[in-house]
């Protein structure tokens, strides 16, 4: 069915707010970043000079940039794997619960409603080395917790803080996936002598693979691009560079280090990565990961 409008202008008018938002908050900054990536600007933004690809050359010879890439990969895969494993575990448990199912599921969706920065602050308080309850408990258990000094601990903290929110999302998808597995398959496997553990790994998990792959992509994209708020609220990329992801580095180099050209060049690289991931996502999800 097609809807026809009497005037040609009305559809455009209706689209205008959306187009404006896209133009102001996406197209214009993107264009700015692209342009800036080819200039060197002084710290006060008073003068600038065209330098061609020098910003990119500097970027790709900077060991810190590669360090940050590695950090991003470690961080992203940790968030994806930890978040998905926990969510799957919770979903399997929720799938078995009969009484109070709704309450249990609703509780698990709550974290998703909390703003990332708020989640960050929450974990920052809980893990604060001098007064955070979790940090104090860890200390009493013999772990010397101080994520301001220890890079690995800082990484663990940002992974926890970022994962926490994503569990709800993963949980919902896994639960839907589990509920779509026909009961008779599990029953057939039970008659075929498979233990519950074996049933899960040889029947249920393979049948979940489309969901799992979809979530892996979504979680990686989330960890790459949407965790700025969490990192800023907990570790600010530190100590040193230990939790500086690519996105955080764009902000840090641009607004703290005031290297606008270098920061813009990094944004352009990130844009390319986003494009690539979008292509991968569409390619694979269109084709669907079939159990083959």
């Amino acid at each position: 069915m097609t809807v026809t409008f009497p005037q040609k202008g009305l559809p455009w008018l209706l689209l205008l707010p959306q187009l404006l938002v896209t133009a102001i908050f996406f197209l214009w900054p993107a264009e700015q970043a692209l342009e800036q990536a080819f200039y060197q600007e002084d710290a006060f933004g008073l003068s600038r000079e065209f330098i061609g690809l020098e910003n990119f050359a500097a970027l790709f010879t900077d060991p810190l940039y590669y360090q940050s890439m590695l950090t991003t990969l470690v961080f992203s895969f940790s968030v994806a794997i930890v978040g998905m494993s926990l969510a799957l575990l919770l979903a399997v448990m929720a799938d078995r619960v009969i009484r109070g199912k709704l309450a249990y599921q609703t509780l698990l969706i709550w974290p998703y409603a909390v703003a990332p920065a708020l989640a960050g602050v929450l974990w920052w308080i809980l893990f604060d080395p001098s007064m955070g309850p979790i940090a104090l408990w860890l200390k009493s258990a013999g772990v010397d917790w101080n994520h301001y000094l220890n890079g690995n601990q800082a990484m663990i903290l940002v992974v926890i803080a970022s994962t926490w929110k994503q569990i709800s999302y993963n949980f919902l998808f896994f639960l839907a996936g589990l509920q779509a597995v026909p009961r008779s398959l599990i029953e057939a496997a039970a008659i075929d002598g498979a233990s519950p553990f074996k049933r899960f790994w040889t029947i249920v998990f393979p049948l979940l693979s489309p969901t799992t792959f979809f979530l892996l992509v979504v979680n990686l994209v989330y960890a790459f691009f949407e965790t700025f708020g969490v990192i800023d609220a907990t570790t600010k990329g530190g100590p040193g560079q230990s939790t500086t992801t690519l996105v955080y580095k764009v902000f840090n180099d641009g607004f703290v280090g005031l290297d606008l050209g270098g920061s813009a060049a990094q944004s352009v690289v990130l844009m390319a990565i986003v494009g690539l991931m979008t292509v991968i996502q569409f390619r694979f999800i269109e084709r669907k990961v079939q159990y083959s």
Binding site: P182, L185, A188, A189, I191, L207, Y291
Partner: peptide, 14 residues
């Protein structure tokens, strides 16, 4: 020690 044939066959699709 029984075997069952289901209405929807319940074959493992993968």
């Amino acid at each position: 020690d029984i075997a069952m044939v289901f209405q929807n066959y319940a074959l493992y699709p993968h």
